[in-house]
Design a protein around this nucleic acid. Structure first.
Length: 806
RNA sequence: GCCCGGAUGGUGGAAUGGUAUACACGGAGGACUUAAAAUCCUCUGGCCGCAAGGCCUUGCCGGUUCGAGUCCGGCUCCGGGUACCA
């Protein structure tokens, strides 16, 4: 328990700050602007967890410091309120999603206000409100009209438990990101956004961003750009060719068979009328029954396939090679691969089905025999059996071979991407309806803009059946075609919630704009986001989609920048006390409400920032909160001492330490090194409260300003008790004097051959000759030198003297 | 496999190439107290030594440097991401 009544202080200042409108956005155009944003939360039934608090405290500290430095700061909060959990909860309990979501938002709001975060609540947004999703729908239509939203039948990911399709980005190792059920493939007609059109720009744009390298790397990998060549193999006995995509055309002379994906449209044509027809059909059916996990399990024995009965001609060597169909080849690239002994997968498959294999690369260029090899040779080396290329290093020859193949017309250079178009339709209720109509006469039509929003009907049975719950709502579908006036039917799918969050940061600039999704003027003032803080789990989801949206809007002149988030920081995961991930089942979840009630909000905030480096994974330690709680008590007592026993003037050495502390705290906040900033505050208060140091009201005031962003309630309370009329947050951030950060007397270490032997105390301006003499006169130094002679003496100003011997 | 990180006391963690272990937790001892809690003070990397002092220590092996936790090369282990991507 604390020395002071934090509950009372917290409640008082929370009300007072609200009354004064202290956190209202100052949009004075003459000030420098700072848009600092947290990834807005999904308001779940569990409420805020300590991981949220970590990120939100960091941005709050930053925002408060920036305001005190005179910037105009936009620091808003809102709700990513559409989504599956509310709907699943509705299915279980019958509570409509809108109702449970409202309750959850009320709870989140209470928690965020309790924790003293300085959000401008007048700018709150909620993606599930018509005033917001009207513009999500508008933006969908915008993409549609620009040819970037389209409907297509294709194999898609289907989660049987959630009864909906999922985007590629939402499938994590073959499982549904949300519920963990196994994802199956279905052939369905769905809506897509043409992200692939922006693949190169999404890749190139990463260079200029101040983002963690690993997030950039994840996006690079996800986009998966590879440069290769499509090599065309003539099919024997037909006038058709099979195109294979490869990044390794240096192995062209070792190709001994082709493998085609079971989904490839040419498979039917290939096998029709062949002896193998039935066998191939049987194997293809078997593969299609495999789940994603079985299909992609990376072990040789799980590879299955069948000979199509067809042969192709290697255009380079003229060799006749069999064409197989197999599960390990996906409809990626051209859906056909040239197979050889230099690829592990091809090699394993060939061994299982006794297909021929040969090598064309070895370590030294001496021919090697693949028929006896135990495994594929995947290293680089020297080519053999490759005609004019023999004796060349395969990597070095690769570009020339590519050009050569292209020159002879055997292939075409191609760039491939792993990135697929973004599947955005969902067969669920709790989302923004896709604003499209279907008329028997006029076909597929966008809902006219003046008819937006397409409201979510409230009288719906939202239990999932595999088709959208909206499909069963009669009122929802009772519409007329805007073209011919005849009966029309609405699209009954809703949008992926990641569409909602792809533009919300723009909405924050003008949250009450009624005529447009956002005010171009306000967005020009505030955006892009200067500092964005949120979890790394969104690396290839939200962060990629928001970049895509921004680039589209940029291309059509709606915004003047093409990257939404200039700087990104990821809070590290907060683990449970046992260093395991926090989860209900492990029973190690820490509830911020409980901590705030027991130790106070300031202690909770301070502790979360003190645990360790912001972006590192770190375990919760309840004992650690006691430490910061003691620190706050000490601040309370020390400042109160100033009040009760006013002393004449501050101690000179304490003043010097204060300047160093201002510098340290200021620089550390900028660098997101909150743990060491707090450590500096602790060092200062320890020094101050030690018996022989005195500080005055000036000292106290400056110290409190440094503490204020971290522990706003205590700092404000003490600031006022020093006799100040207005809020500490309206004060200027303290400045340090570089001269006063310098000590007059310094302690230098004396080394002999780099080993510390003694230390000497000298005036800071002592010249080098004098320092050398002082060092050499030390007993410890003389002992260490012994009989050896001194070769040179290195002096690092203010730090050390190193005596180097022979 | 590939791509990112990381490895420092009993614990969480500090260290622009310059006193390794700041700050905090925990522990030991002491003060106050009838007692406990709270608070305050002292000590707290390892080994040798009565002491003075000495030696060792940032996952492992080398290198660069007057000087390396930090830079370079080669490993080991751990965490995260990702993958039959041809």
């Amino acid at each position: 328990m604390s020395k002071y009544d934090f509950k009372k202080i917290e409640n008082h200042w929370r009300e007072e700050w609200d009354r004064q409108g202290l956190h209202a956005t100052n949009d004075d155009p003459t000030r420098k602007k700072f848009f600092i944003l947290d990834m807005f939360p999904y308001p779940s039934g569990n409420g805020l967890h300590v991981g949220h608090v970590e990120g939100y405290t960091a941005t709050d500290i930053m925002a408060r410091k920036r305001r005190m430095e005179g910037w105009s700061v936009l620091h808003p909060m809102g709700w990513d309120a559409f989504g599956l959990p509310a709907e699943n909860y509705a299915i279980k309990t019958g509570t409509p999603p809108r109702q449970s979501t409202e309750g959850n938002i009320a709870n989140f709001t209470r928690q965020l206000r309790t924790l003293g975060f300085s959000y401008d609540w007048s700018r709150e947004i909620n993606t599930s409100e018509p005033a917001y999703y009207r513009w999500t729908q508008w933006l969908f239509l915008f993409l549609y009209k620009k040819g970037l939203a389209y409907k297509k039948k294709s194999p898609v990911n289907w989660c049987g438990s959630c009864q909906t399709v999922l985007a590629n980005e939402q499938v994590v190792q073959g499982e549904c990101e949300r519920c963990g059920s196994e994802v199956e493939q279905k052939n369905l007609t769905q809506w897509f956004l043409r992200v692939t059109e922006y693949a190169d720009r999404l890749l190139d744009g990463l260079d200029g961003l101040d983002w963690p390298e690993r997030i950039k790397a994840m996006q690079v990998n996800w986009i998966g750009r590879s440069e290769g060549i499509n090599i065309h193999f003539a099919l024997e006995g037909t006038n058709k060719t099979l195109s294979t995509y490869t990044t390794r055309c240096d192995t062209i002379h070792s190709v001994t068979f082709l493998v085609i994906a079971p989904e490839h449209p040419l498979v039917e044509e290939l096998i029709e009328g062949t002896e193998q027809e039935n066998e191939v059909r049987r194997v293809v059916a078997q593969i299609k029954k495999q789940t994603e996990i079985e299909r992609t399990s990376d072990t040789g024995k799980d590879k299955i396939g069948a000979f199509t009965g067809r042969y192709a001609i290697n255009p380079v060597s003229g060799e006749r090679i069999p064409v197989w169909v197999a599960n390990f080849v996906l409809m990626y690239g051209t859906g056909v691969v040239m197979a050889d002994a230099h690829d592990r997968r091809d090699f394993e498959f060939a061994r299982k089905y006794d297909l021929p294999l040969k090598f064309v690369i070895s370590e030294d260029g001496q021919p090697t025999d693949a028929t006896k090899a135990k495994e594929a040779f995947t290293d680089d080396g020297i080519l053999f059996g490759s005609g004019q290329w023999d004796g060349r290093n395969n990597r070095e020859a690769l570009p020339e071979m590519t050009a050569w193949i292209e020159e002879y017309g055997w292939g075409t250079r191609t760039v491939n991407y792993h990135l697929r178009d973004w599947l955005v339709s969902r067969q669920r209720y709790w989302g923004a309806p896709i604003p499209i109509l279907y008329c028997d006469k006029c076909g597929e039509l966008p809902v006219p803009e003046d008819q937006l929003p397409v409201l979510l009907p409230e009288d719906v049975d939202f239990r999932p059946t595999g088709e959208s719950p909206l499909a069963r709502s009669v009122s929802f579908h009772d519409v007329k075609c805007p073209e011919c006036g005849g009966p029309a039917r609405r699209e009954s799918d809703t949008m992926d919630t990641f569409v909602d969050s792809s533009w919300y940061f723009l909405r924050f600039c003008s949250p009450h704009e009624g005529e447009h999704p956002f005010s171009v003027h306000d967005v020009a003032h505030w955006a892009p986001v200067d500092l964005y803080v949120g979890g790394a789990e969104h690396a290839v989801l939200h962060l990629l989609y928001a970049r895509f949206f921004t680039k589209v809007l940029y291309d059509h002149g709606l915004v003047s920048f093409d990257e939404p988030f200039l700087k990104l920081m990821n809070p590290g995961t907060v683990l449970g006390e046992n260093s395991e991930k926090m989860s209900k089942s492990r029973g190690n979840v820490v509830n911020p409400d409980d901590v705030a009630a027991e130790y106070g909000v300031d202690a909770l905030r301070l502790y979360e920032m003190f645990m360790g480096e912001f972006s590192d994974v770190k375990p919760w330690d309840t004992k650690g909160i006691k430490g910061v709680s003691r620190f706050l008590d000490k601040v309370w007592l020390t400042v109160h001492d100033v009040l009760h026993e006013p002393r004449p003037a501050a101690d000179e050495s304490l003043e010097r330490l204060l300047h160093k502390t201002i510098r340290k705290v200021s620089e550390d906040i900028e660098a997101f090194k909150f743990n060491t900033a707090i450590s500096a505050l602790m060092i200062f208060i320890n020094e101050w409260s030690s018996v022989n140091k005195t500080g005055d009201r000036e000292t106290a005031g400056t110290f409190l300003k440094l503490l204020a962003p971290f522990a706003p309630f205590l700092a404000e309370e003490l600031w006022r008790s020093l006799g100040n009329e207005q809020s500490i947050f309206l004060e200027s951030w303290p400045k340090w004097d570089e001269d006063r950060c310098r000590d007059e007397v310094v302690t230098l270490i004396v080394q002999v051959d780099g080993k510390m032997r003694d230390r000497l105390i000298a005036a800071a301006d002592t010249d080098n000759e004098r320092l050398k003499a002082m060092a050499l006169s030390s007993d410890a130094v003389r002992r260490a030198i012994g009989e050896r002679s001194v070769v040179k003496i290195i002096i690092v100003a203010g730090r050390l003297v190193n005596v180097v011997t022979e």
